[in-house]
Amino acid sequence: MLDDFMVRATLAGVGVAFAAAPLGCFVVWRRMAYFGDATAHAAILGVALSLAFQMPIFPGALAVALVMALTVTFLTGRGYAMDTLLGVLAHSALAFGLVAVSFLSGIRIDLMAYLFGDILAVSHTDLLVVWGGAVLVVALIAWRWSALLTSTLNVELAYASGLNPKREQLILTLALAIVVAVAIKVVGVLLIAALLIIPAAAARNLARTPEMMAMMAAAIGTVSAIGGLQGAYVFDTPAGPSIVCVAAILFAVLSIFGWGKGRQIP
């Protein structure tokens, strides 16, 4: 069954959606959307370095994404405005990555595969990496759930409860780097943030508690992955962007549904 490329692609898409859902909720709640973008854009530099040293893509992308996320975390609160800092770092990293890739004249690289993903070419090994990363991220977030939620709500409240919000921030940063590294193959560096944010934002209209929102986001992400791949197959469209399109349509439909019920919009 796993020999069918569509089955592998679907499993990979669902794996990423599964990990991106709870993390995406924190990205939305903590207003870290641009932070996710910056980390993802930096990963292309990791891809270039991995190819240059003829290493597998995953560890290189993970390492650079992690360095980027830690740098941003470290510099925030040291006199730089967050959005300016991210604007500088994200686009610099993307530009340096693209330039670095161009130096690799010996190897023929399909840059599009890393910018927009190449989910239909997912191998058995890729599938293992995606699901390994997804299980790790979900386990990490489930383990720290209550602490992460308290730190997100109020830093002083977290300290007074004996938690360390800085450590929780690091855990989120680590989880983000892992999701970015595993999602490159599926949606590419340019659309990873979409997969984090759109399902979580769509789930907001349906949820009464944080847990419910994370579970709804996972469901919406899964439907988007499956629907997007089917759509890509039927209409012969690029797979990664098709997944994001389905998520966006779900977001729009659920938002209208939410307004109809008089709920708050995100």
Partner: peptide, 26 residues
Amino acid sequence: KIGYVPQRLHIDQTLPMSVDRFMRLT
């Protein structure tokens, strides 16, 4: 055991939180 009431608590509009769930936060 410390019970802490912060100066102000901002709950982001994107974070659904019922009173009952908030009570059992920590």
